[in-house]
C-alpha cells in the first residue's frame, strides 16, 4: 500500500480547487410527509476530500442515496462532470460515481477477488455469448480484469487473501475490500459512507492513509463519518447536515468553531437554565479552542461524536 502521510496541516493548502466533479443543487428528498433532505447544495472538486457530518438522522445517508441514484431527488438536480445524473444506480456507477455502504454490503459468499471483479462490471462488456464461446477476446478481457483486480487488492493490502470468502474476512478488511470493489469501477468520485465505523484507532489511521492514497490517484472523495478526529484530519472541506439542511460548510477550523454545529451536536442551553452560564462558558472555551484546532494533536473536542451527545440532542428536540 502506498502510505501517504499527508496530514491536515498541509493538505488543504496543497490542494488547489480543480474542476467541479460533483455539483448538487437544491437537493430535496421527501418521503410522504417527511422531508429527509431539504435544499442541500454541495460541490466536490477533483482532487478534493469533502466530509459530510451531522448527528444521527440528519439525512446524510439519504443525501448519499440521492447522489448515487438509489433515490431520485424530489427536487433539485445532481450533476456529475456537468452531466445530469441518470436515475438508476447502475447507470450512476457507469458514469463514474462509486460508493461503499454504511453497513457493509459485500457479496459474502464470493471470494475477495470475485468481489473486486464484480466491481469491474461496468468497465468490461463481455456478455453471455462471449462467455459461452470463449473466444480470444474473452480470455484477454478476463485476464486484464483479474490483473487490475489484483492490483487493487494489492493497493488496499488484501492480495494475500484473494481466494478467501469475503464473509470470512475480519471487519476492518471487509471495509477495505468494499473500497477496493468500489475503486474497481474506475470512479472519478468515491463516496464513502462511514468508512471507519466500528474500527479501532489503528484501523482508522490506516483507512485515513488509504483515503489519502486514493485522493492522490486523482479521485475525488466524499466521506460521511461520525469520527470527528478522522474527518477533520482528512477533509479539505466539511459540510454539516442537521435535520436535512446544510448548516455550514467550510474547512475544518470554520466548522469546528461554528456555534450552530456545537449546538446541533450537544443541544442548545435551555432558557432560565441554572447551568446556562457554565454551559455558555464551556462553549465559549471550546469555540475558542476550536479556532486553534489546526493540528492533529488538538483534534477539536467540541464536536466529538459522543453517542450520548447525539442522544441528548434528540431528547432536547422532543
Amino acid at each position: 500500500m502506498t502510505t501517504d502521510t499527508t496530514t491536515q496541516g498541509n493538505a488543504p493548502g496543497a490542494t488547489t480547487p480543480g474542476r467541479t466533479v460533483l455539483d448538487a443543487r437544491g437537493v430535496t428528498m421527501r418521503f410522504g410527509g417527511l422531508t429527509a433532505v431539504r435544499g442541500v447544495d454541495l460541490t466536490v472538486n477533483s482532487g478534493e476530500i469533502v466530509g459530510l457530518i451531522g448527528p444521527n438522522g440528519a439525512g446524510k445517508t439519504t443525501f448519499f442515496n440521492c447522489l448515487t441514484g438509489l433515490y431520485t431527488p424530489t427536487e433539485g438536480e445532481v450533476r456529475y462532470q456537468g452531466q445530469l445524473l441518470p436515475p438508476k444506480s447502475f447507470k450512476v456507477t457507469a458514469a463514474g460515481i462509486a460508493r461503499t455502504f454504511q453497513n457493509i454490503r459485500l457479496f459474502a459468499n464470493m471470494t475477495v477477488l470475485e468481489n473486486v471483479l464484480v466491481g469491474r462490471h461496468t468497465r468490461t462488456k463481455e456478455g453471455f455469448w462471449s462467455a459461452v464461446l470463449r473466444g480470444p477476446g474473452f480470455h484477454r478481457a478476463e485476464k486484464a480484469s483479474r490483473a487490475r483486480a489484483m492490483e487493487l487488492l494489492d493497493f488496499v493490502g488484501l492480495a494475500a487473501k484473494a481466494d478467501h470468502l469475503a464473509r470470512n474476512l475480519p471487519y476492518g478488511e471487509q471495509r477495505k475490500l468494499e473500497i477496493a470493489r468500489a475503486l474497481a469501477s474506475e470512479p472519478g468520485l468515491l463516496l464513502l459512507d462511514e468508512p471507519t465505523a466500528g474500527m479501532n484507532p489503528q484501523e482508522t489511521r490506516a483507512t485515513e492513509e488509504l483515503v489519502f492514497a486514493i485522493r492522490d490517484q486523482g479521485i475525488a472523495v466524499l466521506v460521511i463519518e461520525h469520527d470527528m478526529r478522522f474527518i477533520f484530519n482528512l477533509c479539505d472541506r466539511v459540510a454539516v447536515l442537521v435535520q436535512g439542511e446544510k448548516l455550514v460548510e467550510g474547512d475544518s477550523a470554520t466548522v469546528q468553531g461554528d456555534d450552530r454545529v456545537v449546538a446541533a451536536y450537544l443541544g442548545e442551553p435551555l432558557d432560565n437554565d441554572p447551568g446556562a452560564a457554565e454551559a455558555a462558558e464551556v462553549e465559549a472555551a471550546e469555540a475558542h479552542a476550536g479556532t486553534h484546532a489546526g493540528t492533529p494533536a488538538d483534534p477539536g473536542t467540541p464536536a466529538d461524536p459522543d453517542p450520548a451527545a447525539g442522544q441528548q440532542n434528540k431528547e432536547t428536540d422532543r
Partner: peptide, 19 residues
Amino acid sequence: RIGRAWVAIREDETAALAM
C-alpha cells in the same frame, strides 16, 4: 462476467446495482 453478476445479484441486489 455475467456469471459473477448473477451471483452478485443473488447475494445482495442493492450492492450489485451500486456496482
